[in-house]
Design a protein around this nucleic acid. Structure first.
Length: 103
DNA sequence: ACTGTGACACAGG
DNA sequence: CCCTGTGCCACAG
């Protein structure tokens, strides 16, 4: 069952994102030690344990990468809004909510 | 081994 | 702002 290092690193990072803040796939990949593996971070999120705050992970444009209208999209958006994240035109202001990183 | 695909990102136009 | 092409990395068939 053990996930590979990159995947577990991404999951560990997701667990560290503070409430009300967000991180991009590219950010997570970089913090995990692979600056060019944003897509793989996305795959890691697809395999993300439901207990983690997966909704705090969005794309570099400040939008949700799940298909609009789907249950996943609505869940993610509602959770973020519950944490105080404001959506404008389907996007959030990254300069305002972006997590600086683990260290 | 090769091709297609994706919860991505960035440079151009 | 939009849309498009290209680069990227790993997985599935």
């Amino acid at each position: 069952m053990a996930a590979d290092n990159f995947t577990s690193a991404v999951h560990a990072l997701v667990a560290r994102i503070p409430r009300g803040q967000v991180a991009t796939y590219g950010d997570l990949a970089a913090y995990a030690g692979r600056p060019r593996a944003a897509r793989q971070a996305g795959y890691a999120m697809h395999r993300c344990p439901p207990a983690l705050p997966w909704h705090r992970v969005i794309n570099a444009r400040g939008a949700l990468s799940l298909a609009p209208g789907t249950t996943g999209y609505l869940t993610q958006r509602r959770r973020l809004e519950d944490e105080g994240v404001v959506f404008i035109g389907g996007r959030v202001e990254l300069s305002r909510y972006r997590w600086p990183g683990p260290g």
